[in-house]
Measured scan of single mutants.
Amino acid sequence: MTFKLIINGKTLKGETTTEAVDAATAEKVFKQYFNDNGIDGEWTYDDATKTFTITE
């Protein structure tokens, strides 16, 4: 399955996707992406659209 990440950061904005077997696996991938890029904020997940959103 394809999961999308929408980034609404102070310095970084955009979208990316990842292929994962489930939302929990995608969450781990995206959290690592947050850490690697110094993004910290509030994030949500919409199961209907398989979209994670992080807002700094």
Rank of each mutant, 00 (worst) to 15 (best):
V29Y: 14
E42I: 14
K13P: 06
E42T: 13
N37H: 14
T55M: 06
L5S: 01
F34I: 15
N37A: 13
E56P: 11
G38D: 09
G41P: 04
T53C: 06
T53K: 04
A48C: 07
T16W: 15
D36H: 09
T51S: 04
G38I: 12
D22R: 01
I7S: 02
L5A: 09
A23C: 10
A23W: 11
L5C: 14
D36G: 11
T53E: 04
G14V: 14
T55K: 04
E27Y: 15
Y33M: 13
K50R: 13
T18Q: 04
F30I: 04
F30G: 00
F34L: 15
F3T: 01
W43Q: 01
K31T: 05
T44F: 10
T25E: 14
Q32E: 09
T44K: 08
Y33T: 04
Q32N: 08
I54Q: 02
E19N: 12
G38A: 11
A48L: 10
F3C: 04
N8M: 13
G41S: 04
D47W: 05
N8R: 12
A24H: 09
A23Q: 08
T49A: 06
T25A: 14
G38K: 11
A20F: 05
T55L: 06
A24P: 07
K31V: 08
G38Q: 11
T51P: 00
K13E: 05
K28V: 08
A23V: 09
A48R: 10
A23T: 05
K4D: 02
T2E: 06
F30R: 00
V29M: 10
K13T: 09
T18Y: 13
Q32G: 07
F34E: 08
A20S: 06
A26G: 01
G38V: 13
A48H: 09
N35F: 13
K4Y: 14
E42P: 05
E42M: 12
W43I: 09
V29K: 09
T11V: 11
K31A: 05
D22N: 08
T55S: 06
Q32P: 01
G41A: 09
A20Q: 07
G41V: 10
T17I: 07
I7R: 02
I6K: 05
A48K: 10
T18F: 14
K50Q: 08
I7G: 02
I6S: 03
A23N: 03
G38C: 12
I6D: 01
G9D: 02
G9L: 15
E56R: 04
T51E: 03
F52M: 01
E19D: 08
I6P: 00
A24V: 10
T25D: 07
D36Q: 11
T44G: 05
Y33A: 05
N35K: 14
G14M: 14
I6E: 02
D36C: 10
V21S: 10
K4Q: 04
K4S: 05
L12W: 14
K50L: 12
T17H: 10
V21R: 11
T44V: 08
F34V: 15
N37V: 14
T49H: 04
M1P: 09
E19A: 07
Y33E: 04
T44R: 06
G41E: 03
I54C: 06
L5D: 01
V21L: 11
I6A: 03
E27C: 14
F3S: 01
G38M: 11
F52I: 01
Y45P: 00
T49V: 04
A26Y: 01
I7N: 01
